[in-house]
Design a protein around this nucleic acid. Structure first.
Lengths: 194, 194
DNA sequence: GCGCAATTAGGATGATTGTCCTAATTCTAT
DNA sequence: ATAGAATTAGGACAATCATCCTAATTGCGC
């Protein structure tokens, strides 16, 4: 098999396992078993566990960049794009209730580990923040764009955490509707609520 | 030394270590070293690591129960009590920026580990929820009490997650002011905002 | 078809882990 | 003061972990 393909399989498997069980709790053997390759082969592609983590973070970053770029293309209003972001918690409902937010839980875990790659993981969170800031600027809220962006991002993290703890689908739906209402109030040409 | 005192020391040390480094990442040896006792002595008080975790969760639960009871006594309006809860993120700012929310990060970790004690950890989150529900009922919002309670709880989790990722003190302050403004709008005799 | 590089397999290693055991020490009741 | 219980110390244990090594196999250019 081409080295690229094997490497890709390893990263994909590690991505899922890190998400489902956490980074520290996932062993080399776990990943090797998931991909059905020997640990020796494994070592050929990644010298250390940290290298796999870096590759997984990079993959997650690229995945999100691609997703955001797609929203940039397909939605023609910034409000619609922000709404896309908000609705992730519904689209990924099942996984979020089981494992939380892939980005939030990873940054939290790496921060506790004081892992060298924690800043790299934080960059994914920053990617979301900066993209949201751009949307709010486009929406005509330049002065409060960062404030609003962090508000939405923090909202998503809070919803994900409670969804995981309480497994309450209705709560997620209610929160989405509430923040969409808030967002609606920010669209120019409407009565502002705050 | 009295058995109770040693046990207490172990639980206290484990509590801090679990908070700072995570449960899975904290070893028997780490705790023993922190308390300065032998692993043998350790085993006399706790047969398994899970037993320590249970004790830590119970301690955290009792600590929070005590804190909420104190707020119930010292603040005479439900709005003031909810404000106390909101301001935890400022009072514990430094620790939250370093390690996140003690309750949220633990429930998230145990959920990924599918640990037998995860429900016990979730009970702390439920304690906050139920206490907040009571406050909002007292505030005269019986119909939407649960909705509001989860809103505040989710808010605190979101703020804690982003505070840890971005280490931005101003963001925390801003968010606290915003939600206190929202809370103010819910106090009877004022113009409701939603 | 041959040679060489890329890729894979699988075992070895040393460190760390949670758990368990036995012997020493300390405390307490009489 | 002394017996018996409570507490502590420290080492042994098997399992698991990330890491490393060497040998086998595969694929590809010629």
């Amino acid at each position: 098999m081409a080295a690229r393909a094997t490497r890709q399989q390893i990263v994909d498997a590690a991505d899922e396992l890190f998400y489902g069980h956490g980074y520290a709790q996932t062993s080399f053997a776990d990943i090797a078993a998931a991909v059905n390759i020997s640990r020796g082969n494994f070592y050929y592609h990644f010298k250390t566990k940290d290298e796999i983590l870096d590759a997984v973070i990079e993959k997650r970053l690229e995945d999100r960049e691609w997703l955001l770029a797609r929203w940039d293309e397909t939605s023609d209003s910034p409000a619609a794009r922000i709404a896309c972001f908000i609705r992730i918690v519904i689209v990924n409902q099942a996984k979020i209730m089981a494992y939380g937010c892939p980005v939030g839980t990873l940054t939290a875990e790496l921060a506790k580990l004081e892992h060298p790659s924690k800043n790299k993981a934080n960059a994914i969170m920053a990617l979301f923040r900066d993209w949201l800031i751009r949307q709010f600027i486009d929406l005509g809220h330049e002065a409060r764009a960062e404030d609003y962006a962090l508000h939405v991002l923090g909202w998503s993290q809070g919803v994900a955490t409670l969804a995981q703890a309480f497994k309450d689908e209705e709560y997620i739906t209610r929160e989405v509707e509430k923040i969409l209402g808030w967002l609606d109030g920010l669209v120019p040409g409407r009565a502002a609520k705050t």
